[in-house]
């Protein structure tokens, strides 16, 4: 991956802060739901999970992540892969989000 692509991956990550998990009210980035972002030849590859397997919001979240990643200038297409390996745990959240949610 080139330096330019790394910047694009950062831009995708910034764009994903717009995508809020409706139940917890925090972004998918702060919740640690995004496992990996890579950009190759203008295509963003995002690997993500959800807090609960089978959650009714899953399809909406996946679509929202794709749409937010795709909206970044320089990204021609975004591909989102949903995974539950490993399954999400609250320990994956960023500290700021943990404290906002009063997590133990």
């Amino acid at each position: 991956m080139t330096t330019g692509n790394e910047t694009l991956a950062d831009a995708v990550e910034r764009a994903l802060t717009m995508v809020i998990d409706p139940e917890l009210g925090e972004s998918v980035i702060d919740l640690g739901l995004i496992y990996e972002i890579t950009v190759e030849d203008g295509v963003a590859y995002v690997e993500m999970t959800t807090t609960t397997r089978g959650c009714p919001a899953t399809a909406y979240l996946k679509e929202a992540v794709q749409s937010a990643a795709w909206s970044v200038p320089g990204i021609h297409y975004a591909e989102v892969k949903l995974t539950y390996e490993p399954s999400w745990s609250p320990g994956m959240m960023k500290d700021a989000a943990r404290s906002r949610l009063h997590l133990a």
């Binding site: 995508v19 809020i20 979240l61 992540v65 749409s67």
Partner: peptide, 22 residues
């Protein structure tokens, strides 16, 4: 409220700022 949120805001999630379920 959770189902209501999804019905109302699910389609614009990630494109527009949305409120929380709460």
């Amino acid at each position: 409220p959770f189902l209501t949120w999804l019905e109302c805001f699910g389609a614009v999630m990630g494109r527009k700022p949305t409120p929380r379920v709460q």
